[in-house]
Design a protein around this nucleic acid. Structure first.
Lengths: 224, 224
DNA sequence: TCAAAAAGTCAAAAAGTGGTCAATTTCCTG
DNA sequence: CAGGAAATTGACCACTTTTTGACTTTTTGA
């Protein structure tokens, strides 16, 4: 679902420009031209708000406070005024950032993206990699096939992670050693062979499938 | 526990000014003067980072990317350059805001406060409730299971607080030490092991449950 | 078909990790 | 300053993981 962005400004020219540009960037844009409209627009639960704080007849800072009571998304101020005191007032009212007019669309979208990304991060997106029913959670370092846990040891997990991050690519044992152990392999001790065996056993046990392929004379690769 | 702010800049004058000012404002300040120091400082788990992106010999944008791989807190750039392209580069590297030099301390603290507040909102309020009935009041530093008090000592409480604030995340003993003691752990003294044991005993005693999980070879984590 | 090279298997040694306990030191509080 | 609680240390044990090396099997190409 596209991010929803609410634009609050009374200059029609500007709001149209912004909303069409944001739509081109893949966002969903909503416009409110006064305080009343703004409040009712909050019902769409925007992911980010662009708020002009220099509207005649409306105190942008007050409006910001009101918005804040209902919503936690990032609020970016659009402003022509740039006195330091204004900034402080705005930030203390619950705003998250300032964009000073005139601004380029390029800068605006960069900032919008930065704030949305930031929001995304705090929602804690668990990094998950999966391949044919095998689900690997990088954050928790767990590995499941449906309900079945794989119970990989650390080294084993590291190897699986490395191979899965590079599905289809072939790595010889030396490269795997360097990637996982973080240092040069002096000769072939056979550690990798053994670890690969353990991993394959666990995979077979839990899934009944083959995930790691041997490319004779070349190395191993995670099947696509 | 005071917010921890990491200042990354190579100008001693400025870092001292900033850190003393931030301390006056009730924050805990840390300083790093180069990339290496920065990375190792991340172990204190700062709540916010002030990053100079115009340091000679260091590419601030690259450093920012590196930081981002390890940490999710807000990153504010300090910069003299103000070209639009710079801004965009920075924001895309994972930065959250810009402060252009010269800036007033007043503006700086307002921005810092705004970002921390924003972070706070997403982390939710002072009182934290966790798995079934265990209620930890961070303000009063008390911990109850229903009517039963846990009677945690100070260190014990700090550890519980840290783990609960980061439910589900795995921390090795070194990181826990750095986060709770606020300094680098030299070797493993075993303090953490002992504290974890005490905490577990008290938790078990009062609740009959397991809250802290051991992830072999990785560390401990508070169960989700 | 056979020998050499590569990959796979197995069990045992080595290294590392976490839990526990008792002893010691540090820190408060009265 | 004494006495007790809290924090820390170090030693020990049990256990798991990692590595090793000897050995077997498979693959390949002369």
């Amino acid at each position: 679902m596209a991010y929803k962005i609410l634009i609050v400004d009374d200059e029609k020219m500007l709001t149209e420009l912004l909303s069409s540009h944001l739509q081109k960037c893949g966002y969903e844009a909503f416009v409110a031209e006064n305080a009343e409209e703004t409040i009712s627009m909050l019902n769409v639960y925007p992911d980010l708000i662009l708020l002009d704080i220099n509207m005649p007849e409306i105190d942008g800072v007050e409006l910001c406070k009101m918005i804040r009571q209902n919503v936690v998304c990032p609020i970016l101020f659009l402003t022509a005024r740039i006195t330091e005191q204004d900034k402080i007032n705005g930030l203390q009212a619950g705003g998250d950032d300032y964009i000073t007019k005139p601004f380029s669309l390029k800068e605006l979208t960069a900032r919008v993206a930065a704030h949305l990304r930031r929001d995304e991060r705090s929602k804690a997106a668990p990094k998950i990699v999966s391949s044919q029913g095998l689900i690997v959670n990088l954050a928790e370092r767990t590995c499941f096939y449906g309900e079945k846990p794989l119970n990989l040891s650390n080294r084993e997990f590291d190897i699986v992670e490395f191979l899965m991050r590079n599905v289809g690519q072939i790595f010889d044992r030396e490269r795997i050693y360097e990637a996982v152990w973080g240092m040069n392999a002096e000769g072939d001790s056979g550690v990798i062979k053994e670890h690969i065996r353990k991993i394959r056993n666990k995979l077979k046990e839990a899934t009944g499938r083959e995930y790691i392929e041997t490319v004779w004379g070349m190395g191993y690769r995670w099947k696509k």
